[in-house]
Design a protein around this nucleic acid. Structure first.
Lengths: 147, 147
DNA sequence: TGACGCATGACAGGATTCTGACATACATTG
DNA sequence: CAATGTATGTCAGAATCCTGTCATGCGTCA
């Protein structure tokens, strides 16, 4: 317990619990992705590519919450592993569209299954109304912070 | 939307929303802590010290979700800034108790106020029952992942 | 008493990420 | 048409953090 009332009680702070939950999720995801040779950032990039084929590196960076520079190296790694291909000429502007290869799609399928299992484990003790409430509450927090 | 049903729909994934919310919170906290010359890890360390004076570096590392090595450098920085003191001899075992200085307490008070404002902003659109539900849901997720 | 497990702290090395800066390409606006 | 703003990609450098490793100190147990 606290000695004074001026600070933040970590036991009541939503921010701290957010960090704790995210940390646990991060660790669980790393654990299941490591056997597949993927980091969380790699997986996240592949997942985005599956949902939005042909996006630019900068788009991927924004969706993955890393800088453009970091995404550039991530794409180099994924390309070297044969999981993605990147156009060498820009059809419009400077953006070089990125696409999944067949191998990339396979690897992503395995990774998605593993991550989905983690998500289900995380939500094992949450019923359907709770799930809906959780999504809504997290969205409210995000919107309020961005406003 | 998805082209196939094999992957994870980011729009429905709780894990992704957790990441989005945490990212927004992280950015907001960095913004208010920067003028105080503190990083989030620094602030988190000071906050833990206020609630549990005399803890070891390793304890702080666990509570802040960094490695012992990183916490060691954090403590060096905080000590150089005069915000903490670290015993040079171990009263028991090898643990060197860490304590806040008066300056550290002052700085922490300012940081806590700033972070508390961010937390309130994040929860501006959440009522009391929602707050209780959010805490409970996050705890459930964390427990389920650790099991 | 001695062996073992466990935790803490510190050091070296490497990997990853970020900050800052610059050139290019398109859209907008005067 | 020229100027400006915005967005992308890339290079160089620095900062940060982690992995691997080792020595020390305490507790437990045979």
């Amino acid at each position: 317990m606290r000695q004074d009332g001026s600070g933040i009680d970590l036991e009541l702070s939503v921010g701290y619990r957010l960090k704790v939950a995210t940390s646990a999720l991060h660790a669980a995801m790393e654990e299941v992705l490591r056997p597949l040779g993927l980091t969380i950032t790699h997986y996240s990039t592949l997942e985005q590519l599956a949902q939005r084929p042909g996006v630019s590196s900068s788009d991927l960076a924004r969706g993955t919450f890393v800088t453009r520079q970091s995404m550039s190296t991530v794409l180099q790694t994924l390309a070297a592993a044969g999981l993605i291909t990147r156009a060498d000429t820009a059809a419009h502007g400077r953006a070089l569209p990125v696409e999944l290869t067949a191998v990339g799609r396979e690897r992503l399928a395995a990774a998605s299954a593993a991550v989905l299992a983690v998500e289900r484990r995380m939500l094992a003790d949450v019923d359907e109304p709770g799930l809906i409430a959780l999504r809504d509450l997290l969205d409210r927090c995000t919107r309020a912070l961005r406003a």
